[in-house]
Write a protein that binds this DNA or RNA. Sequence first.
DNA 1: AATAATGATAAGCAAAACTTATGAATATAA
DNA 2: TTATATTCATAAGTTTTGCTTATCATTATT
Lengths: 303, 303
Amino acid sequence: MNIRDLEYIKSVSKHLHFGDAALACHVSQPALSSQIKKLETELGVILFERDNRSVSVTDAGKDIIALAEDALSVIGNIYAAAETARDPLSGEFRIGSIPTIAPYLFPGFVTRSRAALPSLKLQFREDITDRLNEALLNGELDAAILATPPDSPKFNVIELYDEPFWVIFPENHDLQSFKRVRTKDLPTDELLLLAEGHCFRDQAMDVCRLDSSNETYTVRATSLETLINMVAARQGVTLVPAMALDPRRISGSGVDTQKLNDKSAYRRIYLTYRKSFPREALLQKMADVFCEGLPDTVKRIRG
Amino acid sequence: MNIRDLEYIKSVSKHLHFGDAALACHVSQPALSSQIKKLETELGVILFERDNRSVSVTDAGKDIIALAEDALSVIGNIYAAAETARDPLSGEFRIGSIPTIAPYLFPGFVTRSRAALPSLKLQFREDITDRLNEALLNGELDAAILATPPDSPKFNVIELYDEPFWVIFPENHDLQSFKRVRTKDLPTDELLLLAEGHCFRDQAMDVCRLDSSNETYTVRATSLETLINMVAARQGVTLVPAMALDPRRISGSGVDTQKLNDKSAYRRIYLTYRKSFPREALLQKMADVFCEGLPDTVKRIRG
DNA sequence: AATAATGATAAGCAAAACTTATGAATATAA
DNA sequence: TTATATTCATAAGTTTTGCTTATCATTATT
């Protein structure tokens, strides 16, 4: 038996036509026919029932072709493992993050990684923490940038940075008079929050010592942009993580900002990945690239 | 890459010695060495670190050899599946027959095949000839027991037996006085027939030299049971093939029977299958099992 | 009856894999 | 130190395998 034979029978079972199958395998039809015949002899099993007009897969053939596809998939993994071993900084990489990080962290990262990791093919996904953790577990993602500690014993993390929280309030709001705003100064009845499922909602409620029983507002934004716009419309005040403070957006938009001055008013950002993920070197390098471009409003942990 | 290459690297990783590994693979040491070198070139990864005195597996090699062992295991399953499938007397088999054969032939066949073909999983279908031929052609059936010669040049047949026709008439009918009934003696105006599409209808009309223009009756039964019951109700007389004569059903039911005494008053029963069907041995065996249990009223062709 | 489609077969060639013989490096023993 | 043994690599030549092109046989279509 031969790996190519497995490709041949897979191809025939797909095309149900020896000529087309051969074409797809880049060999002549007689070559494919004779290899299949030889394999059938070796196995002692007819895989395809064919007359001069049509081809079908026998019952035994179905079982064997399913196994052949399994084997080919494992062999594909061998090539992939080799490629990874050859250069862990190349290949595909799927990374996700949450709506309160991705828009502020990923754009700069893309730019810098083009230089630092030129042969890496990145794919991004933005979703809430729970779904990212799930995607990570089942292998849909290779890593995620999260604001929560590892969710599973199968995960490892690289700690990236600590991100303080800022208050955003309308111009001429009472908060303007404070030199240093602390959580106890916040008008919790005016506080605008993200929707359920967003971890920053929980984090904001946490530093303000609110729990769900305190909820009086029906505002459920799904982005910080929305929250800031609502503050500008004098609907209330809100908290945002430091990275969301874009001076160009803030200035002249009718809102003011202050750093929240409690020691505990920050969140830690992690690069999370499966312990079994084999490209450790790539993860370290990516963590570096993430941290390179961080603004001074956050506190790096690495480097 | 080659399946044998996977065996080679597995062997080397086990022995950590090229000579011993080659011995275990029944090849010369240079053959094994050169194949491994070629594989390493193909993958672009060194699998074994060797100096002239010792061999060790590289980190990349460990991953790849683990995958190679996975692949070899799946390939082992292919051989195992083939071995299971090789027994042509095992597996699924879908067979069909017509309403004037199936009820009389299949029950006994099921019983006997449980002994003779214990690992065969049989599926039965009862339908009219045309639809069985169609099902056979498009692979829905593997074989059919029919009373008509092969319908397509793609079919082969095994001839099973010749089945005489019998007359069934009400007790005290005129036919009772005949020692030997011949077709010319039949009261064709009293003849009850199956519905269109049943081959036995055509066969009965044939021996009686009737054609469709002679039709005067509206009786269109779809089973011989119905015909016999109608005869018992003195609605006419009918013909049935020999296998349909169940003495237990006939005796005391108000009907009498006589074998039709013309030489040509019989039909031949065939086991029909696609020429391309690969399990010839199974078909022969099944033909034997079918013929084993035939009553003396029919004339076997085989054995 | 002619044409097209399709899988099988044949003949010849090219590539791959194997064998034996030998080389090169190094550890071991005298 | 020098000879010997061990071990993987290399070389040369042969066998095996797999491929290509050309062709056949069968069957469906026009």
